[in-house]
């Protein structure tokens, strides 16, 4: 039924990780609801906002690596993960 979607293992892992992050964040939110706060970002954000900003910038970080260099994307992934962690903690 889903043959037309042409699933590849890479993309499956990608979406599974995103779904996993969303699930973990939902559980975390239920266990300890977050409040909006102001970090180093110019606007006050909730945990979900920071996650979204982190994921979106991760996409742009990957594209920048692809466009401007031949460095392996694992480096871009590492940079993104560090950036996401920084955002979630201090953003």
């Amino acid at each position: 039924m889903i043959a037309w979607m042409n699933w590849t293992p890479t993309v499956a892992v990608f979406f599974a990780v995103i779904a996993g992050i969303l699930a973990v964040m939902t559980v975390y939110e239920i266990v300890s609801p977050c409040t909006e706060r102001k970090g180093f970002l110019p606007i006050a954000t909730t945990r979900g906002d920071r996650l979204f900003i982190g994921l979106l910038s991760a996409a742009y970080i990957h594209l920048a690596f692809l466009a401007a260099s031949d460095i392996t994307l694992w480096v871009a992934l590492a940079v993104s993960v560090v950036w996401l962690a920084v955002l979630l903690r201090w953003g």
């Binding site: 042409n6 590849t8 993309v11």
Partner: peptide, 17 residues
Amino acid sequence: MTVVNYSVQDIFGPGNA
């Protein structure tokens, strides 16, 4: 999701990617 799948493949036809 389908578009993401297509974007990492070279597709020549059904079952030929």
